[in-house]
Write a protein that binds this DNA or RNA. Structure first.
Lengths: 242, 242
DNA sequence: CTCTTCCTATGTCCTAGTTTAATGCCTGCT
DNA sequence: AGCAGGCATTAAACTAGGACATAGGAAGAG
């Protein structure tokens, strides 16, 4: 049975600051359905122009870009609540690919119909702007981390960001969260080699700042980790009421 | 005398794909005025929440983030036609700073009033989405360059991108464009040291792919430069008519 | 149970890129 | 003219991080 947008726990979370019921009812109308995918399923691919947009309901994935030389840049990690495929709806094509790393449940919207939402409820242009600003903020931070920080600082940054984000959408868990990524994924996200990623994780472990093992991340002292990561503004951005 | 939006050559350029006169007339109403600034003037700063938004009419600048350890990441270069300060309008505060590197002429809009534009002309949510997607595309590409490419590839990438962008808004110039940046700015954009930036520029010069000197960039063979830069999609995104 | 495959772990060596520092070249100031 | 400050350039010494090699554990296949 399909979840109604108005009841969707994701959109009620602090992160999205309780979207107006007006918007939620409207989204409901254009919801095409739900979709479950296996781990490893490609959801969107660079250069494509899929007619559908998704929001992640559960499970995780990653966004990445491939280069001709074979290397891969992981752009960001995908968590429940994330919106996928907006690019394809606006530009001719996606500029990165998205892939599930666990089984995922997705909410599917028809792109063309969704545009009419933004036409019909003008205020919703604000939701779009917020989404954009959030994305820009994150990418700017990632760029700064990869461009200016040491391996240890970068790794701390990534783990701290992932940890906070997961705790915001996954209610349970103490200082331990489940993380369906390989060290290679982390390496590709941070611009490090797999080997060096491993060594850096070892360093964090022996300093007791973060432990990554068996698809589980444990952060006993988030504040210290964020300090090491040179994170100036640790709180996640939440959508204001405008 | 203040330029009317409807006559603004920037918004008529291919890059922005001739915005509708409807939008332009509307923007005109909320234009507060124009502003000229000296080289070196800070326009927006990280953490601030200025009540005004700008579009660059002429001149250039750069967006950057500072870290506690003193290093600086240049996020992007600002050229005529760019929109500045959207973040502050949506989130509580700017996550990067913007500074003029030449004398600049700016068009000033009141943030609150501009929002009402998006409320009143619903379709304009699309402009916003396009702006966002363009930004996301660029930042993703920058991240991929800094994360995965060699110094020579990164430098080629930056110069090729800058060159194309400038030729799109600056009508004149053959294979030569004016570039008011220091090598340190390039270094901070690409995550390289100043010295290595200089060496890399020398390499490009001796290969006759690009010459940077005295605030002028010359690219005799853009296609070869873009090939070296591993750029898969050289054309700049232009706003579709939706 | 063994073979295989995928991932994590660690050590050694080496290169791309950093740091520091010295030199020279403009441009503006007095 | 003479000096000062900002920027480009080059060289030399150093180091963070990469490449390669190798090994170990977990999980599935037969």
């Amino acid at each position: 049975m399909s979840v109604k947008c108005i009841n969707c726990p994701l959109r009620k979370s602090d992160l999205f600051h309780k979207m107006s019921s007006e918007t939620l009812e409207f989204m409901q109308r254009f919801k095409v359905g739900e979709m479950e995918v296996e781990p490893g399923t490609p959801l969107l691919s660079e250069g494509s122009n899929a007619p559908q947009l998704y929001t992640a309901l559960s499970g995780m994935g990653l966004r990445y870009k491939l280069l001709e030389n074979g290397s891969r840049q992981v752009i960001s990690f995908v968590f429940p609540g994330d919106f996928l495929g907006l690019q394809a709806g606006v530009m001719k094509e996606m500029t990165h690919s998205v892939e599930a790393t666990t089984a995922m449940k997705l909410c599917v919207f028809d792109r063309k119909e969704l545009w009419s939402l933004f036409r019909t409820i003008p205020d919703r242009g604000f939701d779009l702007a917020w989404l954009a600003a959030t994305e820009e903020r994150f990418l700017g931070e990632a760029l700064t981390s990869v461009g200016q920080k040491s391996a240890l600082e970068r790794m701390s940054w990534a783990l701290a960001r992932i940890f906070r984000r997961l705790k915001a959408t996954t209610p349970a868990a103490g200082d331990l969260v489940r993380l369906p990524y390989r060290q290679q994924d982390l390496a590709d996200a941070l611009g490090l080699s797999l080997v060096h990623t491993n060594k850096t994780l070892a360093k964090l472990r022996e300093r007791q700042l973060a432990t990554w093992s068996d698809g589980k991340l444990s952060v006993p002292n988030l504040a210290r980790l964020e300090e090491l990561a040179l994170i100036e503004n640790p709180e996640l951005p939440t959508r204001p009421l405008m």
